[in-house]
Amino acid sequence: MATRLLVRRIWAVSVKDSRRLPAAAASLSSSSSSRSSSLSTSVHTRSFLSPSRSLLLSSHRCISFNVQDNDDFTERVINSDLPVLVDFHAQWCGPCKILGPRLEKAVAKQKGRVAMAKVDIDDHTDLAIEYGVSAVPTVIAMRGGDIIDKFVGIKDEDQLDSFVNKLIGQ
């Protein structure tokens, strides 16, 4: 799992984002210093590479975004280098309106270590059906294209923080 992740990341850096490598490298020191001590090897790997992602996301894309279509989902969620929380929601769903902002807050706290994709299930029914959504809100945690965690319904801020922390491996 970790190896696969690593390969994917490096591939992503070398192929997709080669143009931006200098910037990524430049930001490396400051970013990695902010998450300094007591990191395991695998986290080191991430801390080496993730700054490029966070910079990229903060400068070119919003950390939380609305999924536009299936291709967009593939590109920004499945192929994402960052872990992604996918928030399946609907306009008619009251609890979704409470959870959405809480999730954004929890994600913002991570300062670019996790992204958030918002999927309106009426606009993107096929995606929701494919990902087994039965009730909303449903939140799926994805890393490297794999679903690694999921919850349905509402959670309070603390619960969301620990859900997100688990996802990024803290």
Binding site: A90, Q91, W92, C93, G94, I121, D122, T125, I129, V133, S134, V136
Partner: peptide
């Protein structure tokens, strides 16, 4: 009313999948 209907529409869609 429309929101409630929206939830029913979704429920039907899920039932067909399931």
């Amino acid at each position: 009313v429309n929101n409630y209907i929206g939830s029913l529409n979704w429920g039907y869609r899920v039932a067909l999948r399931d």
